[in-house]
Simulated scan of single mutants.
Amino acid sequence: MSNRFPEPDVDARAGRLETTGYAALHVLLFVPVVVTFVLVVVSAVLVAVWVGIALLLLFVPLMRALVQAHRWMSGRILGAPTTAPYAPLPGGLLANLRTQAADPMTWRDLLWMLWAMTFGFVVSLLSLVLFLGVVTLPIWWYGVGPLMRARASVDRALLTVGRTERLEQRVEALTRSRAVVVDHSAAELRRIERDLHDGPQARLAAVSLSLGLADDLFDTDPEAARRLLNDARGTSSTALGELRDVVRGIHPPVLADRGLAGAVAALAIDMAVPVELALDVPDRLPAPVESAVYFTVAECLANTAKHSAADQSWVSLTHADGVLRGEVGDDGRGGADPRRGSGLPGIAARLAAFDGTLTVSSPAGGPTVVSWEVPCASSSPKTMPS
């Protein structure tokens, strides 16, 4: 069991009286658990006649609230946190209901309710009876802890996922993110090919043609040849600038020259909105991670400039315990939605390739905060940008 769940903190375990209080809460919540279980099951049956959908929209959140209360109590009794590993909800009543119905944790909640209505209820009731009985008080003194911890262990086993399930979820998430990254990389290659074909390649072809014509005209019309050479020089300069733009889109030179902190500071200088920087990262991090985080900051700052109407923005980067954490925020109007083509899904996919995560908080009226975590090691000391 120790391989599946966090090690309990013995000092953080609830004491005898607190544990008995949780047993009393279990008993008091017995009727609500039974009623909620029956209502959810009946509503699921009534889905065939549509009225069940409306009932499930009401009772599934009620079931999760009750289950969460017991999940919290089991964590307090055991002295170890018990998380709620529900699938994230996409938004929208029907979409949320479909996600909840397909979520294995919803079915585990129902299984737990069966346990809580039977053997779990007996354990809690027994602990309470031992406390209330004068003769049984010594038994309560020594027995309430093991009894309630046994019940809490079963609660935790049913209401959260173990190490095997977490690994399975991790593999599934990495498989999805790899597929997204592969698609993103293929799209990037097509974009680079298109940019090279439509820009530098066409201009270099024009330079070659101009040089050929100039070579033919040197003897007969030197002035025309000179004009063609001047045109070729201008065209080659333009082609060189376009090549630099393409290279900058692949790996910015400033990132290679100054590292992540310096490159982010350069981005902030170009912003019309004042940007407050808090950068505490090593001189050098793995190049792919630096590139992914740089483009993450660049995309977030671009969104701030285009959409937020903000007066102030901030960027923070920290590296500790092998994890690079970052945040970009602004005091603008808020309402940023990653599903509306803001570029955030692309950078989330880029970070996912490194087992990173990205979260967005943007309530109406602001502020907007985009934060992420990327596991990575460093081989150089931390410095602040000059």
Rank of each mutant, 00 (worst) to 15 (best):
P88C: 02
V369R: 11
G335A: 13
F131D: 01
L158K: 05
S208E: 11
L267R: 00
V180F: 03
A152R: 06
P345L: 02
A377G: 15
R258D: 15
I53L: 08
I250S: 02
T383P: 11
L174P: 02
I347C: 07
D155L: 13
M63N: 08
E373C: 13
F37C: 00
L324M: 06
E276A: 08
D231S: 12
I269A: 03
L213E: 11
M63D: 07
G326S: 03
A14F: 07
E290I: 10
R4A: 08
P288E: 06
G356R: 01
S177V: 08
H307K: 09
V45A: 15
G199T: 08
V40D: 00
D311L: 07
A179R: 09
M148L: 07
L137R: 15
L174D: 05
A214H: 03
A232F: 04
F5M: 02
V254T: 04
P367K: 01
S124H: 12
N230L: 15
R178P: 04
V315S: 02
S378P: 12
H251I: 05
A179L: 12
S153D: 03
L301C: 02
L267H: 03
P274W: 08
R244C: 06
H70L: 04
V27L: 06
A298W: 01
R190F: 12
R191Y: 09
T164D: 07
L58N: 12
L358A: 06
R325D: 06
F59T: 14
D337R: 15
R190G: 11
T160I: 10
G145Y: 10
G365Y: 05
P253E: 06
F121M: 09
E290C: 11
S237P: 03
H307C: 06
V374L: 13
P252R: 01
A352L: 03
L240T: 07
A239S: 06
V180Q: 01
L196K: 02
L209K: 12
V129F: 10
F5T: 00
A44L: 15
N3A: 14
L39P: 04
G133I: 05
G329K: 00
W141K: 12
S313R: 02
T106V: 01
R339K: 15
A69Q: 09
G15Y: 11
M384S: 14
S291Y: 13
P61D: 12
V293K: 10
G133A: 06
R350I: 07
S342E: 14
G234Q: 15
I347F: 11
A48K: 07
R149G: 09
A305M: 08
D270E: 13
A320E: 15
P282I: 00
V323G: 07
P81V: 00
G356T: 00
V370Y: 02
A364D: 15
D183S: 10
A320Y: 09
T235Y: 03
V247P: 09
V281A: 04
N230H: 00
A224S: 15
T175Y: 06
A157I: 03
L147D: 14
A268I: 04
T238W: 11
D331K: 00
L62N: 10
A24G: 09
V60I: 10
P385A: 00
Y142T: 15
L204Y: 13
R98H: 14
K306L: 07
S316Q: 11
R258G: 15
D355G: 07
